[in-house]
Design a protein around this nucleic acid. Structure first.
Lengths: 130, 130
DNA sequence: ATATATGCAAACGATTTGCCACTAA
DNA sequence: TTAGTGGCAAATCGTTTGCATATAT
């Protein structure tokens, strides 16, 4: 899965990186594809998927799997927490920063803990009128 | 998605429930299917998927999505945390119980938080020899 | 009796990949 | 020059679904 060969910075890869870094909406691959086509109409979905994967491997962006349908991508690869609205599915960043000390909670001496992932579920402001 | 009609307790549904409740291995749908076939050779994959979905909706079991490939199922539907080994992919339960007070950490007054999901990543005992 | 479930196989849909022409370094 | 990429379309693969038959209640 890891890139063994060196990579080129192509127009396509640059564009995709800029699109993901330029939004806080945690877009799906298809959203990125639609945005990219506005600038480069002939770009293909395969290229978008390939480059998103490369960028994730390079640590430039982060992949989020909340369900087994679409993956979402986050232009901010640093560890931070998310809030997922149960009604509209929107994903937003939380101000709350990552607490590495949570890892210490694990008492099991057989496990080596490197990181954790914490997500909150509920209703966003827009969806509270139900 | 929710069941509007009443359900029957069929042999197949009972078997699938027993298999998921009877393991702590957080199995995939296909693993459940293989186990089920040992008892009921003609059971179909579709039936396994259908019943796993029903059991999740009924709150009998829990679905876990760690990647965008396989879903995994947990016979313990109560809120608890998991540890995922980055090398072998094994998912294990943690003694650490869920801390509802973590939800209070969210200061954003526009959000209503119902629950959270916390997972730890690292190396299990078997995979620490790399 | 009859509404719900099963088995089977085909359909789905997000993602990946093979291939050959193109292009960054 | 040449190894890495892009575009395109076909292939993957976990999961869902339509349909005719079987079965729980």
């Amino acid at each position: 899965m890891a890139r063994l060969t060196k990579q080129r910075m192509t127009k396509q890869k640059k564009l995709i990186l800029d699109i993901v870094k330029g939004t806080t909406s945690h877009p799906t691959a298809d959203w990125v594809y639609q945005k990219a086509r506005e600038v480069m109409p002939n770009i293909s979905l395969g290229t978008v998927y390939r480059n998103l994967r490369f960028l994730v491997e390079m640590g430039e962006i982060m992949e989020l799997n909340y369900t087994n349908s679409y993956s979402r991508f986050d232009g901010n690869p640093s560890n931070h927490y998310h809030f997922v609205c149960q009604t509209c599915g929107e994903v937003s960043d939380l101000e709350l920063t990552s607490h590495p000390d949570i890892d210490v909670l694990i008492k099991d001496k057989d496990l080596v803990v490197f990181s954790h992932r914490l997500e909150f579920y509920g209703l966003c402001s827009k969806c509270q009128s139900d």
